[in-house]
Amino acid sequence: MFSPHGPSLRELAVQALSSVERGYDLLAPKFDHTPFRTSDAVLDAVERALKTMGPFDRGLDLCCGTGAGTDVLRTVCRESVTGVDFSAGMLAVARREVPSGGWPRADWVRGDARALPFGPVFDLVVSFGAFGHFLPGELPGLFTQVHSVLRPGGRFVFPIGAPPRPASPWYWTLLGFDTAMRVRNALWRPPFVMYYRAFRLGDVRRELSRAGFTVEHQALPDFGRRPDGSPRCRLLVATRAGGGAPAEVSRPPAG
């Protein structure tokens, strides 16, 4: 699962016994050599979808990590892109890996997604692979924060994969991981919040709607469909009201 340039087992153990922020500070130099980085296949699929919705002026990469999603924003935003993350270590890698020159310009801000330090200045907010770090009870506040930094008509866009079936080895792998994290957090402080199975489509749609978004979704065709016809991966498109009708988005079969 890890390249030779990735973290050692000892380094992962030290990270897992740290806070989320400290853990990612420690992991940052080797993060892009782990399976935790969002895959290029997902990034490319989202980029293609965003190009059909844009262009946009100003984009925000929420919980940007080392900047992989910020690179996607630079292909669809004309004025500027901003990456925000609470890990100074991850931001340091992003500053080094993502060129700050050229156009659109890239800015990096250290901040908490639950208390964003911006006004309503963005046309597009994206996020990749970060939602497992938020407990279900934190979603209302998180989505309200995103709503507050979008201009009227702005979009909050992110991919969400279909949950694996109980017959799949991935189902038991993720269940085992989440169980281990819950045991760890019951026995050790500070907690390390990372639950792969806590971010569910129905809950997400409901909380986005409550935060004031119009929510639609489309299948990401690169990842195919499950035997019941439902997509293996969807793109959620949440639009802040006030900017006219959102772009038409297809609705896949339920599931």
Rank of each mutant, 00 (worst) to 15 (best):
P191Y: 07
R225D: 14
F177N: 02
P29N: 02
S80T: 12
P227W: 11
R226P: 01
R165V: 14
G119H: 07
K51L: 15
V204Q: 07
F56V: 02
F134N: 00
D178R: 05
D71V: 15
V215H: 00
P252G: 13
D203F: 11
S148T: 09
T38N: 09
F122V: 08
T38H: 06
L135V: 11
G65Q: 00
G54E: 08
T34W: 07
V183F: 09
P169Q: 13
L174V: 05
F86A: 03
P140C: 07
H5C: 10
F199H: 02
G141P: 05
R151Y: 09
G224N: 12
R165M: 13
G154L: 02
F158R: 02
F118N: 03
A28I: 01
W188N: 12
V109Y: 03
S87P: 06
D25C: 01
E248D: 13
F122G: 01
A94E: 04
P163A: 15
D57N: 11
R74T: 03
I160K: 10
G6L: 06
P164S: 12
W170R: 15
R184G: 04
A247C: 12
S230I: 00
V84K: 09
F31R: 02
P136V: 04
P190L: 09
N185M: 12
D112V: 02
V98I: 12
G161W: 10
G101T: 10
V42E: 10
S127Q: 08
S230D: 08
P55V: 08
P99R: 14
H5L: 14
P159F: 06
V157I: 12
S127N: 11
A241R: 08
L12C: 13
L62M: 10
R210T: 13
F31W: 00
L60I: 08
P35A: 10
G59T: 09
A94L: 03
T34D: 05
R95A: 09
V146T: 07
F223G: 08
A245R: 08
F31G: 02
A94K: 05
R105V: 14
V146C: 04
G111T: 06
V204S: 04
R210E: 14
R200E: 14
F134E: 05
P7C: 12
F31Y: 05
A49V: 08
R182S: 14
N185K: 10
R114M: 15
V98N: 06
K30Y: 05
E11Y: 02
P166V: 12
Y195S: 00
C64F: 07
S3H: 12
A115V: 10
G229F: 10
G69P: 07
G137N: 11
R48Q: 11
P221R: 15
G244Q: 00
G242H: 03
V249E: 06
T66V: 03
W170E: 15
G67Y: 03
G89L: 07
C64H: 04
A167K: 14
S250F: 05
D25K: 03
V42H: 10
H33L: 05
L43G: 11
P35N: 07
G132P: 00
F31E: 00
G102L: 09
A41M: 11
S168F: 09
S230K: 01
Y195P: 01
M53C: 08
D40V: 09
G255A: 12
D25F: 03
H133D: 13
R114L: 15
H33V: 04
K51G: 15
R225G: 10
A186R: 12
Q145N: 13
P163D: 14
E248F: 07
